[in-house]
């Protein structure tokens, strides 16, 4: 009998999200940090971001970044809860993955409406 486990799937998403966030999250934070400092970059003006998200490729990029970042953060947060002494792993897993799933659906719906 072949042992069935969802671990490879969860781990694959975590690895993909971890790699993506390693490459792009710092520069994204720099872009919105510039907004916070009062120097909004062209891409983050209404016209700039609307133009980017109006194209299907822009929608795809934004969806993949948001969804994968949420899923990998959710998976690591589940482990972190355990490390901080919270032993209710099933409950924690349900909550963090539900937030990631809802966030991914919300991102898809919002992008679809642009």
């Amino acid at each position: 009998m072949v042992a069935k486990s969802n671990k490879p799937l969860i781990w694959g998403i975590f690895a993909a999200g971890g790699t993506l966030t390693a490459f792009v999250t710092p520069v994204l934070i720099v872009l919105t940090l510039l907004v916070a400092l009062g120097h909004t970059p062209d891409i983050l003006t209404y016209e700039g971001l609307h133009g980017f998200a109006a194209h299907w490729l822009g929608k795809l990029v934004l969806f993949v970044v948001i969804a994968l970042s949420l899923w990998s953060a959710a998976h690591r947060l589940r482990i972190t809860f355990y490390d901080f002494g919270v032993r209710a792993d099933t409950l924690v897993a349900v909550i963090v993955y539900a937030v990631a799933a809802l966030g991914s659906v919300a991102a898809a719906v919002c992008l679809f409406r642009i």
Partner: peptide
């Protein structure tokens, strides 16, 4: 992951406002 997750939720709010 707490900060990356929180920041991603901020991005999501931005997309929603957009």
């Amino acid at each position: 992951c707490i900060f990356i997750g929180a920041y991603t939720l901020l991005l999501l709010v931005g997309i929603r406002r957009l």
